[in-house]
């Protein structure tokens, strides 16, 4: 959902590459309807790429037509139950680094970047 927004950075600014990730599994209520709508909102290739890079899951390159509950549970686990506790999100375009600490991404830019 997050992308690089440094002024002038418009190519390769999404998805952000995640480095030194420290992950945590949390429990989030499963809501099938929410999960279905979420899938339509996320950028699927970026999601697949990120899940793979983090070594979490190998998802199909194309979103299946038929989204059964098992598949939705898989997405639920990845998108809602896997929390980045710490790490760095790096923009492949401009190399800006966004830090995550205590599970909170710091997306502030510097005054010279806006």
């Amino acid at each position: 959902m997050l992308m690089c927004h440094v002024k002038g950075c418009s190519t390769d600014n999404f998805p952000l590459r995640i480095e030194d990730a420290e992950m945590e599994q949390v429990e989030v209520e499963f809501n099938e309807d929410f999960c279905r709508r979420l899938i339509n909102k996320i950028d699927w290739p970026a999601f697949v790429q990120t899940a793979f890079a983090l070594g979490l899951d190998q998802l199909p390159a194309a979103l299946p037509d038929d989204l059964d509950e098992e598949f939705l549970q898989r997405i639920h686990k990845l998108a809602l139950e896997t929390k980045l506790k710490a790490g760095r999100m790096v923009c492949n375009g401009c190399k800006h680094v966004y830090l995550i600490t205590d599970g909170i991404p710091n997306m502030l830019l510097q005054e010279t970047e806006v």
């Binding site: 959902m1 927004h5 429990e27 209520e29 909102k41 966004y98 909170i104 830019l109 806006v114």
Partner: peptide, 23 residues
């Protein structure tokens, strides 16, 4: 409510990082 409060982000609404989608 930890099973519904998904998280927080530090950002400025005037220069925010959300990818443009009807989230």
């Amino acid at each position: 409510l930890t099973n519904r409060i998904l998280g927080t982000v530090v950002c400025d609404i005037a220069h925010h990082p959300w990818r443009e989608t009807e989230f």
